[in-house]
Computed example of a mutant assay.
Amino acid sequence: MVSQDLQDRRAYLGSYADRYFELLPSGGYRQLPIAAGVVFTENGQRLRLGQGLWATATGAARTRAVTVLDGPAGQIATWGMVTEAGHDAILGVRLRVDDEGLIDEIDTFVVRFNDMSSTFSGSGLLDAQRLARPAPGLLDLVDEGDRPSVAELRRAADGYLDGVSSGEAGLIPVADDCLRIENGVQTVLRADGLLPGRAPNPATAMGVAQQVREGVTRHIAVARDRGMYLTDPSRGLVMVRFFFDHPGAVRGWQGRSPFTGPNSMPAWEVFKVRGGLIRHIEAIIAWFPYGYRWAAEEQR
């Protein structure tokens, strides 16, 4: 069972995220309960609150695809659709609320599809309609007998990242029927073998572990700079922020590489874990310059 205190804490934190998205299109950041010295970042760069997307957003969805509440840590992370200059974008927001009820940390991740790297053909993966509503089943409570601990949640997330980046499928504690959704698009176990706007690709019909075993992820060199872990054992959820580094089609490369040139892929990824296995994955991803880092981490 989840204690009433923790339920109240979740509702309290959820109201902060709702208010953030509600105020964004008007630029009304001054109406947020902000602590003195609040740290605000957009895509890893420390900005003054009111800059970045706060100055350019023109709309935000009323409901969002993913929310992870870490009540004991006073943190919430959520993402959904926004509009900026007539373009769709995805906005991820992490808020930390102090004991006084003031927001003292804000991290945001804006996936702007018109700014995608020229090394990737097309505008990138996006299903805006799906990202505008909650992911089915993600917030369902996990039965206590199948409920993971905080340590087990973190191990599951790290096992996935280790396995995908090393090509070792055995490191990933994942169920065969696990779905992975990236920017709202299902990228595994697709019966049609197609991604929107792409040529047929048999890899999209494979499961998570099979893709790794078959070498589909071999273009990933490393999963680095992991951090911002949020955990909710009652719902079997863990979120982690990281980078995948892609060296590109380097000289002597054999086989398929989805990227011509080098780039780094920042991601916020959420895993739902039940009975020791990852059952569902939700992620938002973008393409940034190779070697990009969250510079703001060094300023804290």
Rank of each mutant, 00 (worst) to 15 (best):
Arg10Pro: 00
Arg10Trp: 07
Leu13Ser: 07
Ser15Arg: 13
Tyr16Val: 08
Ala17Pro: 08
Arg19Thr: 13
Phe21Tyr: 13
Phe21Gly: 05
Glu22Asn: 07
Glu22Ser: 10
Glu22Gln: 13
Leu24Val: 09
Ser26Trp: 09
Ser26Leu: 08
Ala36Tyr: 07
Gly37Asp: 06
Val38Leu: 03
Thr41Glu: 09
Thr41Asp: 05
Leu49Arg: 03
Leu49Ile: 15
Gln51Ile: 12
Gly52Tyr: 05
Trp54Cys: 07
Thr56Ser: 11
Ala61Tyr: 00
Arg64Leu: 12
Ala65Val: 00
Thr67Tyr: 02
Val68Thr: 10
Ala73Phe: 08
Gly74Ile: 12
Ala77Tyr: 11
Trp79Leu: 00
Trp79Ser: 00
Glu84Gln: 11
Glu84Ser: 09
Ala89Pro: 02
Val93Met: 06
Arg96Ala: 14
Arg96Gly: 06
Val97Gln: 03
Asp98Leu: 13
Asp99His: 14
Glu100His: 10
Ile106Leu: 13
Asp107Ala: 10
Thr108Cys: 12
Arg112Gln: 09
Arg112Asn: 12
Asn114Gln: 14
Met116Val: 09
Thr119Pro: 05
Gly124Cys: 06
Leu126Ile: 08
Asp127Cys: 06
Gln129Cys: 07
Arg133Ser: 15
Arg133Ala: 15
Arg133Met: 15
Pro136Ile: 06
Gly137Thr: 09
Leu138Arg: 08
Leu139Met: 15
Ala156Asp: 09
Leu161Trp: 02
Asp162Lys: 00
Gly163Phe: 01
Gly163Met: 00
Ser165Cys: 01
Ser166Asp: 07
Glu168Arg: 13
Leu171Gly: 02
Leu171Trp: 05
Ala175Met: 05
Ala175Ser: 08
Asp176Tyr: 10
Arg180Val: 02
Arg180Gln: 13
Asn183Pro: 06
Leu189Arg: 08
Leu189Thr: 01
Arg190Lys: 01
Ala191Asn: 14
Asp192His: 10
Leu194Val: 14
Gly197Glu: 10
Ala199Tyr: 04
Pro200Lys: 09
Pro200Glu: 11
Thr204Leu: 12
Ala205Asn: 09
Met206Thr: 07
Gln210His: 08
Gln211Leu: 14
Glu214His: 15
Gly215Leu: 09
Ile220Gly: 04
Ala223Gly: 04
Asp225Glu: 15
Met228Asp: 14
Tyr229Lys: 07
Leu230Asp: 01
Thr231Leu: 08
Arg235Gly: 09
Val238Asn: 06
Phe242Trp: 07
Phe243Asn: 03
Gly248Lys: 03
Ala249His: 11
Trp253Pro: 04
Arg256Gly: 12
Ser257Lys: 06
Ser257Phe: 02
Gly261Val: 03
Pro266Thr: 10
Ala267Lys: 04
Val273Gln: 02
Gly275Arg: 07
His280Arg: 13
Ile281Thr: 01
Ile281Leu: 00
Glu282Met: 01
Glu282Gly: 04
Glu282Phe: 04
Ala283His: 00
Ile284Lys: 02
Ile285Ala: 11
Ile285Tyr: 05
Ala286Ser: 13
Ala286Pro: 03
Pro289Thr: 12
Tyr290Thr: 05
Tyr290Lys: 04
Tyr292Ser: 15
Arg293Lys: 14
Ala295Lys: 13
Glu297Ile: 11
Arg300Ala: 14
